[in-house]
């Protein structure tokens, strides 16, 4: 069954239409990458999927079950299956690394503290942050904060992970440490929806690539279809421009 199924999703800020009917889907374990010029609505799509921005039309199904974004219960259930990592990490500034990772499983999911802390230690080790359990976010570099944010999302043991330009706020030398972390996750069968401008990375890890422009999906295909033989001019321009850099 399709794990994440988005049909004709529309979204507006005030009177301005940002998403004009987006359709895409991801099978279980797939890594679907969203590419497209900035302002095309990629972040808005991810925010709408987790219910931070209310969709005005369309349908979202997770494992076949439709999400009702106006129902608090439905949104809570959705968020227990789906985690998001933001471009700006959004770690809680008032909590240590360990607390950032453990707070939701302990206080929201009510899981035993010892068990969650063991899991968190394992996750932090996996993202290479085992030495920083007691540090506060402001004491960490951007790349380190982003890796903690990924560990925090994983601690919820989500079935679907949304990643929004998780490397674009980082210094170039920090990018690879975060990409390595994500690369390892792709082997573990988590369904991923990934927004990124790192084209070679997208090409390497994605099972499918979705090109967006102006609030719409322009083209969907395998990485080689999109990068080697795009059918739409808009995709060709965008890919060509990005790859030249």
């Amino acid at each position: 069954m399709t794990h994440l199924d988005v049909r004709d999703l529309a979204c507006s800020y005030g009177s301005e239409k940002i998403l004009k009917g987006v359709t895409l889907s991801a099978e279980k374990g797939e890594v679907v990458s969203l590419i497209g010029p900035s302002g095309s609505g990629k972040s808005t799509l991810l925010r709408a999927l987790v219910g931070l921005t209310l969709p005005s039309a369309g349908e979202v199904r997770v494992a076949g079950k439709a999400v009702d974004y106006s129902s608090r219960k439905s949104v809570r259930e959705l968020r227990s299956q789906l985690a998001i990592v933001f471009q700006q990490y959004n770690l809680f500034q008032n909590m240590t690394v360990m607390r950032n990772v453990t707070i939701a499983p302990i206080t929201i999911k009510k899981r035993p503290k010892a068990e969650v802390e063991a899991l968190a230690a394992e996750l932090l080790a996996r993202v290479g942050m085992e030495a920083k359990h007691d540090a506060y976010p402001e004491e960490l570099s951007g790349g380190q904060q982003q890796r903690v944010a990924i560990a925090r999302a994983l601690a919820l043991q989500p079935e679907i992970l949304l990643l929004d330009e998780v490397t674009s706020a980082l210094d170039p030398e920090r990018v690879n440490e975060v990409l390595d972390t994500i690369r390892r996750l792709t082997d573990e069968g988590i369904t991923m929806l990934l927004v990124s401008h790192e084209m070679s990375f997208v090409r390497e890890v994605s099972t499918r690539v979705v090109m967006m422009d102006d609030g719409k999906v322009v083209e969907t295909g395998t990485p080689s279809q999109i990068f080697d033989s795009p059918t739409h001019e808009r995709t060709r321009d965008f890919v060509g421009m990005i790859l030249k850099h």
Partner: peptide, 16 residues
């Protein structure tokens, strides 16, 4: 605002 959005996506209610 990002701090609050972070909490919401982790399923924190308003009080938490």
């Amino acid at each position: 605002k990002q701090q609050i959005e972070g909490a919401r996506t982790l399923n924190f209610g308003a009080a938490r």
